[in-house]
Structure formats: C-alpha cells, structure tokens
Amino acid sequence: MRKVSFAEFGGPDVLQLVDAEEPRPGPGEIRVAVRAAGVNPVDWRIREGQVLGAHPVELPSGVGIDAAGVVDEVGEGVTGVEVGDRVFGEGSSTYAEFAVLGAWARMPEGLSFEEAAGYPSVVETALRVVREVGVRPGQTLLVSGASGGVGSAVLQIARDRGIRVIGTAGAANQEYLRELGALATTYGDGWVERVRRLGPVDAALDLAGSGVVRELVELTGNADSVVSIADLGAPEFGVRFSGVAGSMPAALAEAVDLIARGRLHIPVEKSYSLAEAAAAHVDSRAGHTRGRRVVVI
C-alpha cells in the first residue's frame, strides 16, 4: 500500500510517499480502507519533533491520526462494527491507503468521507478545552483564532450550550464567524480594544499560538480562565497548555449527536492527495484556515 512517511524530523520536505506493508488491527482495533485523513497541526508538530513527550515517535514514522473510511478488518474482541461499515475515528499513520483505528464511530447520514475525516481530533480538542476553561452557560468566551477546525467546533459547541462567544480571525473570515453565532472581530493592532468594545470576557481560548496569551489574561483578569492549545510558552504566564487528549469514544459520540441535531458542521476548505501531503502541512502551519483541510485517498 501507499503511505506518507518520514525518516527524520524536519520540515515538510522530509515527508515521502512510500510503499509499505499493510497494517493489521490488534485486539480492540479495526482496520479501514482510508477514504480521507484529517490534517491537524499536531501532524506537523510531530513531524518537527516538537511534542515528543505527548507523542513519542519511532522513526521511520507514518503521519496522521484522523481518518474516515470503510471497515475491512476487525480485531479480536471488537463488537458493534462490521466489515463494510462507514466509520470515522482516530488511529495512527492515517495518511495511507489502509490504517488501524483504536477509536471510531459510524459516520452520520449525509456526511461525506472528506467531511467526516475532519471531525475526530478537532471535536475532542474543542470539547476538552471548553471543559478545561470552565466557561458556563450565560458567560462570554473569547476565542483567538476562531475560524479553523477547532475554532469552528468550539463556536458551535458553545452556542449549543448557551455560551456567548467573541471570535477573532482575519478580515476574510468575519462573516464566517458570524454565521457560526459568534461576535466577530479582527486580530492585529488594536484587537484588545475591539474585543473590549464587544463586552466583558469571562474566559478565553488561544487556538492559534499567535503570541496573545498575555493579552488574554489581561482581558479575563485571571490566568486560570485561559487555556492554550498552540502556544508552548503559555505556562510562563500561568496559563494551562492543553495537549493531552481525553476520551475519543466519548468525543465521537457527542460529535455524532451534534451533527445529527444539525448543531455542528465543519466545512472542508481544501483537499490534497497523498502526494501533496507536504503542501497540506505548509498550508496548515500557515494558518488562516476556514474549517478543515484533508488528505483524500
């Protein structure tokens, strides 16, 4: 089978499309014929060797953790899923023609493989940081970098829970944030004052890692009310860096519920082939995403 792999840490040029042995599922796992794989910032962070504590890597390594596809092999002890089922979930080395998943759910009706591949890690992260930041119904949550995959999910989850949201994004994504129910403003010079004009902030999330943690603490008045998933220096300001995933099965179940109720939709901004994985990483690292990027097999 074909898969994307890297034999050394480095820039996107270390990614290679190689021929590899097909993986086999162990107990409690399934194998899927991958139709699409989600492109996440953690993918290029792993490739660069930034997060080895949370994501140990044995080289050469595959790439990708999210996928949607068709079950073609079921491991020992697995029940409730059969060969031929359409599923989405989390595993390893998902930029490939076949991948093993350790957590999955059946795809909701009407969802394409490309769309489904963009949900697993994004929704788990969004649910986790909303929980960790402690924001409650009726309060106001500020989301810095709100137009990407996690931001798109956070805005819709917050809206479903009765939480008021202020989102920052580039000028081109202002209407997109409003469509998701947020009060929108641009980042850049003067952004703190623009946020203040929209009202007081109870909690804040840094999703872009653009050096705004100090200002988020200033706006909330409390470092405990700020969580970052993108700024490794956040703890210097007393801010929690959230990098350890919670329960993926629970997150997938909630995603299915939200999608089925019409409360969650994350658009796919751009699709790439396996051979274009390096370009996908370049674009992901550059940010300014509206929704999700995926690799299509």
Rank of each mutant, 00 (worst) to 15 (best):
G190W: 09
E115T: 15
R285E: 15
G62D: 02
V63R: 00
A171D: 12
A117S: 10
G10I: 13
E76G: 11
A184F: 02
L232M: 12
R194N: 05
Q174N: 11
D224V: 00
A277R: 06
F6Q: 06
P56V: 10
T79Y: 06
I266Y: 03
V42S: 12
P60I: 13
R164W: 04
V227G: 01
L101F: 09
A169H: 06
L59K: 13
G38T: 06
H55D: 11
L258Q: 02
R131P: 00
G246F: 00
G91F: 02
I46E: 03
V74F: 06
K270S: 12
D283W: 00
T140L: 02
A169P: 06
D43I: 11
F237N: 05
E193N: 14
G102M: 00
L258H: 03
R86H: 14
A36D: 04
V129R: 01
T186H: 04
E124Y: 01
R240S: 08
V212T: 11
M1L: 10
R178A: 15
P25R: 02
A171Y: 09
T186E: 15
V57A: 10
S5D: 12
V81F: 08
V71S: 03
A275V: 03
A280H: 05
G28W: 09
D19Q: 14
A203C: 08
Q16A: 14
G118F: 02
A33N: 12
R161Q: 15
S284K: 04
I157K: 01
D13T: 14
G162L: 08
A275K: 08
G148M: 06
R128F: 04
E124C: 04
A286V: 05
L205V: 02
N40F: 07
I65M: 15
D13Y: 01
P235C: 07
D231R: 08
S247T: 11
E193V: 04
A184I: 04
A126Q: 01
G233W: 01
I297F: 14
D72V: 10
S121Q: 09
L183M: 14
W191R: 02
W104C: 02
A105S: 13
M1C: 07
I266F: 05
W191F: 15
W44G: 12
A33M: 11
T125H: 02
